[in-house]
């Protein structure tokens, strides 16, 4: 088994774990988004490792990495849209204060 593949997959696993911790533990919306970014980064590393070491002749692996990058950008755009709306309505983006979605 290739040490490079294992290293890349372990990096992906670690980023995924750190991202899960961040997304669950943070109370601030922007910090939660940072956790989600790390989770997606972990998935991206795995996809690229699978492409590079198992199927380098199939470009679909790289295409899926591009899709994950797109999802990261979308998450940022929608997240900040929600954050601005929330900040304007309540003056804060603390999710502890957002338990009731009454607006």
């Amino acid at each position: 088994m290739s040490i490079e593949l294992i290293l890349a997959l372990m990096t992906g696993a670690a980023l995924f774990g750190v991202g899960i911790y961040g997304a669950l533990s943070q109370t601030n919306l922007v910090m939660i988004m940072m956790g989600v970014e790390l989770i997606l980064a972990g998935a991206m590393v795995n996809l690229l490792a699978f492409w590079r070491y198992l199927h380098p002749d199939v470009a679909a692996g790289q295409m899926f990495v591009l899709i994950i990058m797109t999802v990261m950008a979308l998450e940022m755009a929608v997240g900040f849209g929600v954050a601005i709306a929330r900040f304007r309505a309540k003056g804060s983006v603390e999710m502890e204060e957002a338990r009731e979605l009454k607006g």
Partner: peptide, 26 residues
């Protein structure tokens, strides 16, 4: 809870990465 969830996620993914037979590497 977050620490446990993060650790379980890492351990699960790392175990799959190490234990699974990925086949021939290019």
């Amino acid at each position: 809870l977050s620490l446990v969830a993060g650790f379980v996620a890492f351990t699960g993914a790392a175990a799959v990465a190490v234990l699974f037979d990925w086949g021939p590497v290019v």
